[in-house]
């Protein structure tokens, strides 16, 4: 409700741009002053050339790689969201299920998921499905654990509030537990979002024809530092946009969350 005025937002954005420009400037200067070889640290200019100079950019099909990786990230994110929330609801709904499933989840969560990637490659073979599966595996647990916490840990007084009117279990879920879990769910999703990016890249490292992770590996083989840095830059931009989208969704789903306390 209380949006910052346009002028302040523009000034804030300009400040961020200046910050980035200063870092790039220092980087360029250091490379020039100390004559650092481009196969050790490429200058920002070289990195940008590999992305935007038509002659150099043509050797990599950037949009294909960006599209492949973004697609994997989004797909793994939505699978994580759907599966995570469904499982969390199931666990919170039934106490016996909670007692049975939660220890298994905690146990599975203690496995370093990335280490399972080679196994998953053997099971699912080369391609999208392996990458997505690795990403989901990595990103899944924070969503489940956070959402279950939000559904179960509730001020008992809030339950009294509806129970004295004889609320059904379904009503308690719809009116109290699920809205109460929303902030927890989004906290989990933000953690998962980063993990989806990591998971997708690791998936591409081990099994992929396209994607920025794949490109990163082949550039490594050619000691093409400029392309490697360009990949890293693109990945961080994709990660940032993705994170921002989740923030926007959070504000849209919870319009009450960013209101301050009022005075009479």
């Amino acid at each position: 409700m209380k949006k910052k005025p346009m002028k302040k937002r523009v000034i804030g954005f300009v400040k961020k741009l200046i910050g980035v420009a200063v870092v790039l400037g220092i980087w360029e200067a250091v490379v020039k002053i100390f004559h650092i070889k481009k196969y050790i640290l490429p200058s920002p200019v070289l990195v940008f050339q590999s992305l935007f100079d038509p002659a150099k950019a043509a050797k990599n099909d950037w949009w294909l790689h960006i599209g492949t990786t973004s697609g994997e990230i989004l797909l793994s994110f939505f699978v994580t969201l759907l599966a995570g929330v469904l499982l969390a609801l199931l666990i919170a709904w039934s106490k016996p299920l909670n007692k049975m499933i939660m220890p298994v989840i905690v146990l599975l969560n203690s496995i370093p998921k990335i280490a399972l990637a080679p196994l998953i490659l053997l099971w699912f073979g080369y391609g999208l499905q392996t990458n997505v599966f690795v990403a989901v595996l990595v990103a899944f647990f924070p969503v489940v654990i956070n959402t279950v916490t939000g559904l179960i840990e509730i001020d008992d007084n809030l339950l009294d509030l509806v129970n004295y009117l004889g609320a059904s279990k379904r009503q308690v879920f719809m009116k109290i537990r699920i809205p109460n879990a929303l902030p927890h769910l989004f906290a989990g999703l933000k953690t998962s979002a980063t993990m989806c990016v990591t998971g997708s890249i690791v998936g591409e490292f081990i099994a992929s024809k396209n994607g920025l992770g794949r490109l990163l590996r082949s550039a490594q083989a050619n000691i093409d530092m400029a392309t490697m840095f360009a990949c890293l830059l693109l990945l961080s931009i994709i990660g940032l946009i993705f994170f921002k989208l989740i923030s926007l969704a959070e504000h849209a789903c919870m319009p009450w969350s960013d209101l301050g306390g009022g005075e009479e």
Partner: peptide
């Protein structure tokens, strides 16, 4: 209004 826009008495 949302509750956290109100004072305790309100």
């Amino acid at each position: 209004c949302y509750p956290n826009e109100l004072s305790g008495g309100m």
